[in-house]
Design a protein around this nucleic acid. Sequence first.
DNA 1: ATGACTCACTACGTGAGA
Length: 277
Amino acid sequence: MKIATYNVNGVNGRLQVLLRWLEEARPDIVCLQELKAPQENFPIAAIRAAGYGAIWHGQKSWNGVAILARGTDPQETRRGLPGDPDDAHSRYIEAAVKGILIGCLYLPNGNPAPGPKFEYKLRWFERITAHAAELLASGAPVVLAGDYNVMPTELDVHKPERWLDDALFRPEVREAFRHLVAQGWTDALRELHPGERIYTFWDYFRNAYARDAGLRIDHLLLSPSIAGRLRGANVDRPVRGWEKTSDHAPTWIDLGTSGADVGQFRSRTTGRSRSGE
DNA sequence: ATGACTCACTACGTGAGA
């Protein structure tokens, strides 16, 4: 079971890239962010033709999130993050898919910091943390996947010293991410690749992808009830090199059928897990 | 310190992204 998160940076402008990646990587579940499309302009026909059911929450020009499921329709459980009825941004959608509760999130960027946008980011972090605690308390198998707009540690950023005052790396934001994870979540990529430099985003500027001047800001957090099924996790880096591509690359995990047979499954799935690169 | 790039929009500049 392959679950991916992908900030597409415009789902219509990026449709050919998205469809090619879906066909090559064949993820079972996909969380998309930055649709940059109003509700009625989501390319549902093309996504259905590719074999995926979908739910989405659009918004004109900015934001927008979606959950795709291969061969089935996600069963929506929530649209919008609780805690602020005045928040009009489309940044959270949640669904039950294939026995897993999937939260798809697009956390605010927060720049410039300090300022109202940074305050909004910190408040949004408090709200997702409160909601995440409720999800954990339910005991359900949960994956919280998306663009968190946070580099959790210095290992997750090409030149940490240049990002110290940035809203993606300021101490308050890293602390907020630590606080969230400390509830009991597993940062899947870091769990399987401790100490390794892994990026999920490369700026369009300054030839950043060719120089590998990236950031790790797209994350998949696993609840304890599903963390034992983690078999693989990685980034489909080559997608970032395609024509007309997003500045993010698809980031994914591979889950086994249960947590009881780790060794048996790891040896069987490793090759398949890496075939998408 | 700045800008480089890319997107969408009552567009031929602007705001936002990270």
